[in-house]
Design a protein around this nucleic acid. Structure first.
Lengths: 304, 304
DNA sequence: TAAAAATACTCCATAGGTATTTTAT
DNA sequence: ATAAAATACCTATGGAGTATTTTTA
């Protein structure tokens, strides 16, 4: 024979009211079966829970001590219904989100702040990864969503996508270059095409093909070919190399939040390419926490 | 409709085996009602727990996350049976034990050490109280047992009693008295009756009548009347007064463990009265933890 | 004598059983 | 062809109801 929840609820009701009649009423049943239920519970336990004289009911010492254990146990089970509801609606659960290093400086903090304010019970797992790694992780189901640099057209059809941020590209240049007049800076903007001859540090094409293409396309459109001095997969690394004077780089404008001695961020005069960062996820992934994340992401100002 | 334990156990079994047939076997039932049970559970929750193709069963994401909450909740309820058993047998629970201050120096530490080694889950509530206070607390049910100084014959009949320790009385005297030769000490023992003329510090009769009578009886048997300089209810206080040179005191031998500068404990030559400390409890109190305590107490060496 | 729990019985809801069908491999 | 889950239907246990008795304050 096994203790059932019903009996425990019966016990709690009687313990609370110390009156079989009223307890039964509270439970929506009549008194006799409640007496039966308690008696059978006492038999199972091998000890009396209540001392009943015909005029009054009191807990035995054993009953009082057991009560202290029963209440939390029953509440634990009762809570399962709420837990299920919160899991279903995305109020609780887990979400694994990858992001490219460039999202670190504006997009990710804003998104995470909003999301975890709205869903504090969700365990948000954040992993930094390049766009190509993210695409693999998404299709293999290792992450639920990714903040990456791509365009809708270049994504596999199993993924859905929403743009989050459009930002211009700015030049990250060694401070020395500005001071020795190697660059033509007017009104805080890079002028002309002269700078295009200087050595460039860039993401490898494999890692972020769309970003790579964007930069090369920009040079080509102005009739130039970049002198690629070095490739690096981390934004941090690229900026370090710039700071060391190895070359310049074209980076998303939000990277200005990554201040570094010896590095200046300078907008480019004229038509500049815009870089799009967006959120991608599996169309078939109907995880409630993911839906909530997409919802929140959609409310972010794409120009900020 | 309310979730019942049975369904949760069903869920756990299927989640563990990922096979309705084997899970049913494990549960001692057949497969069809198990399928029904899970289906009804899923309906209650409003979400699928399992993805079943005809050849394989897998948890949904929701199922996996909910499982993490269900298992501890069900285990919590299952543990109630064990808890009840431990409460019934005195393996767990509470015990309120009072003790006189003189028990502090030998009896109580030995008893508590043994008891809590044997019953580590029992919450032992220790309160220091004089014998008369303990008798009141016992009859009013505020404590379950008391270590007190009394004799079986002087206890009310509702209480049961077991002697724990018989020890001689020794004299606690100011060190100065030994040095200035005011006391006749030979072979480390107080000789003769001369010391009986010195001022005495003693427990009030109200607080420990048996101890009080014992001391007075001792003087009377030798044809003396003590000069009572001061009364005090705490052993600590009595020893402080001795240390201050206010007088001497007759105290249980185990009090030698309470070292104090300026105080010397000296045995009395010849026939000395023995003091009995024992455990008292209500005959009608059938608290399992109390029975265990009486059991342990009986194994203590009464001469130690 | 009245309030409240226990006892005696009756009933039906449902947990679980049996037989069968469906479906994916 | 077969293993495994779902469906359909049946059975019976036991949880809950009604009527009554017992008890003690």
């Amino acid at each position: 024979m096994m203790i059932e929840l019903r009996q425990l609820r019966h016990f709690l009701a009687v313990a609370d009211t110390l009156h079989f009649g009223r307890a039964a009423e509270q439970l929506g049943m009549t008194q006799p079966p409640l007496s039966q239920s308690i008696i059978s519970l006492e038999k199972m336990l091998g000890a009396a829970l209540f001392l009943r004289s015909k005029r009054s009911v009191a807990l035995t010492t054993f009953g009082r001590q057991w009560l202290d254990h029963v209440r939390p146990a029953v509440e634990g089970v009762a809570a399962l219904t709420d837990v299920a509801l919160r899991l279903r609606t995305g109020m609780a659960g887990r979400l694994s989100l990858a992001f490219v290093s460039t999202a670190d400086y504006s997009l990710l903090p804003r998104l995470v702040e909003r999301y975890s304010a709205a869903f504090p019970e969700v365990e948000l797992e954040l992993v930094e990864a390049t766009s190509d790694i993210q695409l693999g992780a998404l299709s293999e189901g290792r992450i639920n969503a990714g903040i990456l640099i791509s365009t809708r057209s270049s994504l596999p059809p199993v993924l859905d996508y929403r743009p989050l941020l459009k930002e211009p590209v700015v030049a990250a240049v060694p401070e020395a270059w500005v001071e020795d007049g190697r660059l033509d800076v007017v009104d805080g903007h890079l002028q002309g095409d002269g700078w295009m001859a200087h050595p460039l540090i860039i993401f490898p094409a494999r890692v972020a093909p769309d970003f790579h293409d964007l930069v090369l396309g920009f040079y080509r459109a102005r009739g130039h070919q970049p002198f690629i001095r070095q490739e690096a997969i981390q934004m941090q690394t690229i900026i370090s190399l710039v700071s060391a004077g190895l070359g310049m780089a074209l980076v998303p404008a939000s990277l200005r939040n990554l201040a570094r001695t010896g590095v200046r961020y300078i907008p480019i005069a004229g038509e500049t390419p815009e870089l799009e960062t967006g959120l991608a996820w599996r169309r078939t992934d109907n995880l409630p926490t993911l839906s909530a994340m997409i919802e929140i992401a959609s409310t972010l100002d794409p120009e900020a």
